[in-house]
C-alpha cells in the first residue's frame, strides 16, 4: 500500500467489529410520515384495516424504512463509527438491501452493524475514503428480516 495511505492501523482494526445491538420499536406514525415524505400513498403503509385485510398484523414498513435507524434519535450523532476519518464531509455512495420478512408496526427490531470494508480513491473531490457498513436486522422472534449494505464516501 502506498506510503500516504489514509487508512490507518486504527481503521483496519475496526473492520469486522460488530456494533452493540440497537433495538427499535416499529411504530405506525413514523411509517406513515416516512411514506408521505417520499410521496408513496400505498394503503399498506397507512391504513391498518386495509393491511389486516391482506393478512398483516398492522401496517407494514416500506422497503428501505429500516435505513432510518442509521440516524438514531438518542445520540443525534449519526452513524456510529469505531474510528475517526481524516475528513469531515460525507456523501452517500450507495445502498443495497436484502429482504426476507415483512416488517410490521409492533415489531421490535434489533440491528447489529459492522464495518465491512474500507477503500481509498482519488476522485473529483480529492482524496476519498469509502466506508462500507453492513447491518443485519432481526425481529422479536429472532428472524432476520433484512440486511443492508451502505457505502459512505468521506472526503
Amino acid at each position: 500500500m502506498a506510503e500516504d495511505s489514509i487508512i490507518t492501523d486504527e481503521m483496519k482494526a475496526a473492520i469486522g467489529v460488530e456494533s452493540e445491538p440497537s433495538v427499535y420499536e416499529i411504530e405506525k406514525e413514523p411509517i406513515r410520515r416516512w411514506a408521505e415524505a417520499i410521496g408513496d400513498f400505498n394503503p399498506l403503509y397507512r391504513d391498518e384495516e386495509y393491511a389486516k385485510s391482506k393478512g398483516y398484523r398492522s401496517i407494514i414498513a416500506p422497503p428501505g424504512f429500516l435505513g432510518n435507524y442509521a440516524f438514531p434519535v438518542k445520540a443525534g450523532a449519526g452513524p456510529r463509527r469505531g474510528f475517526s476519518s481524516p475528513f469531515t464531509r460525507m456523501l452517500n455512495g450507495g445502498n443495497e438491501y436484502d429482504f426476507f420478512k415483512p416488517v410490521q408496526a409492533g415489531d421490535t427490531i434489533t440491528a447489529v452493524s459492522r464495518l465491512a470494508e474500507l477503500r481509498e480513491r482519488e476522485g473529483r473531490l480529492g482524496k476519498m475514503l469509502f466506508i462500507i457498513n453492513e447491518t443485519v436486522y432481526k425481529n422479536q422472534d429472532g428472524e432476520i428480516v433484512a440486511k443492508a449494505r451502505g457505502t459512505g464516501i468521506s472526503y
Binding site: 450507495g94 443495497e96 438491501y97 429482504f99 449494505r149 457505502t151
Partner: peptide
C-alpha cells in the same frame, strides 16, 4: 415481493 435491490449514487 422485493428480494433484493441495490443502487449506486
Amino acid at each position: 415481493m422485493i428480494k433484493t435491490y441495490g443502487i449506486s449514487y
